[in-house]
Computed example of a mutant assay.
Amino acid sequence: MNQPLTFRMMDTHAGGDVSRIVLGGIEPLPGDTVRAQMEYLRDDADGLRKLLLFEPYGIPEMSVDLVVPATDPAAAAGYIIMEVMGYPIYSGSNTICTATAVLEAGIVPKREGVQHFTLEAPAGRVKIEARVEDGVVEAITCEGLPSYIDTHRASIRVPGLGDITYSVAYSGGFYALVDATELGFGLTLDEERRLADCAHRIVEAIQAERGFSHYTLGDVGPLPFLHFMGPVEQVADGFYRSRSTTYVHPGVICRSTTGTGTSARLALMNHEGRIRPGDRLETVSLRETGFIGTFTGVRQEGPHAVVENTITGKAYVLGHTEVVVNCDDPLVECNGLRQLLSARRG
């Protein structure tokens, strides 16, 4: 019998999106940056992602964040994001969950009041502001990636749906942005399956018609995401609210509105002249959870107005687990795992 492999994990959620934070039991990864370590996992050791996102350990709606030592001396820790579609370089909900986990695990000492630290994502440094009250992490504010509009109100013929108007933003990945009302949706929980089917059709049609290139990163793959936008209401001076939901993979609608989806919305509102630096947008999910995006500034990069922003949300700890991986289990695929996980000692 093979010796069981073990690792430590903290399950969390932000806005309903469950992020499984791997805190220990992983062998050191090759690569002199967190981005290089992510590429190693993606290209040569994808077993951990598959293990935790599929049966018997998980479901595709979850995410995994592997905490690793930072390679940037300015950062307290690094983290690698794993989702059903692969390895995004950034995610707002995963960052909120990871920042909470490193505080709860003592990797970053938790202090009352407001504290600041830096994490290293595959996308680079991420500044974190944490608000702690009575020992509880009540809010995390993290930098969103600089976001911009690539395409504004283009039209495409989608089989079974007709002509669809969409915009495209980059906010850590390319997002198609569509008006939910134009498509007959009120963005309520009972619509979740129909939203996933509709989004899949639109994304497939866009992927078949065209590709997208980031102005500095170049080709980052086909457009993977779609964000349904509800009507925007102004609830106070400089504060807006909109129902929203994000499609990320066939059959998968995020439980939260997503941080990168919220950043994409800020970019679109700026492009359309509907928001000013300092304004905030709260996106509200199918499950009535929300993130708040703050438009902090804008700069011109060639033809693009690039929006700087932050995302604020709260993560909750769901549990602490030692996961045991038995490679004799016929439901467990250990290829791509053995080189990552530490065998039980003793």
Rank of each mutant, 00 (worst) to 15 (best):
G135R: 14
I128M: 09
I80P: 02
R125L: 14
C142P: 00
T118A: 12
M85S: 13
E138M: 13
T118N: 08
G106Y: 11
E120I: 05
V137Q: 00
V132D: 01
A76I: 11
F117L: 13
G106T: 10
P88R: 08
T98R: 05
V108W: 01
M82E: 01
A105P: 09
P109F: 09
A123M: 03
I140M: 11
S93A: 14
E138V: 15
A121Q: 02
T95G: 09
Y90N: 04
I140W: 00
V114G: 12
V108G: 09
N94L: 05
I96Q: 01
A139F: 08
D72F: 03
T141C: 06
G106I: 14
G78N: 10
T98Q: 04
A74E: 12
I107C: 10
A70W: 02
P109T: 11
K127N: 15
V84D: 03
I89P: 00
V137G: 00
E133V: 13
V67L: 08
C142H: 08
A121S: 13
L145H: 10
A70Y: 04
R131Q: 12
Y90F: 15
A101L: 15
I128C: 09
R125P: 07
T118Q: 07
I81M: 14
T95K: 06
A121W: 00
V68P: 00
V137R: 00
T98G: 03
R125I: 12
G113C: 12
E112H: 05
A99N: 06
D65M: 15
L103P: 02
N94S: 12
I140V: 12
E120F: 06
A77V: 08
A101V: 07
S147N: 05
A105Q: 15
L119M: 15
T71Q: 10
M85Q: 14
G86H: 07
A75V: 11
I107F: 07
R111W: 05
V126E: 02
A139V: 13
T118W: 10
Y90G: 11
T71H: 14
P109C: 10
A99I: 03
P146D: 06
D65H: 11
E83P: 03
P73E: 10
E143H: 10
F117E: 14
A105F: 08
V67K: 01
A121T: 01
A74F: 13
Q115D: 14
V132G: 03
L66S: 06
V64S: 04
E138N: 15
C97T: 06
I140C: 09
R131D: 11
I80K: 01
R131F: 08
A77N: 05
E83I: 04
F117W: 13
V102S: 07
K110L: 15
A101Y: 06
G92L: 04
P122N: 04
G86Q: 12
E143V: 04
P109M: 15
E129P: 11
S91R: 02
Y87T: 10
D65K: 01
V84R: 00
S93K: 07
Y79C: 03
A139W: 08
R125Q: 13
L103V: 04
V137K: 02
P69N: 10
R111V: 11
K110H: 05
G106D: 13
I81S: 03
S91H: 02
L119T: 11
E120H: 04
P122K: 04
E112T: 07
G92T: 02
I80R: 00
I107N: 05
V126F: 08
T98L: 05
V84M: 15
V64Q: 02
V132P: 00
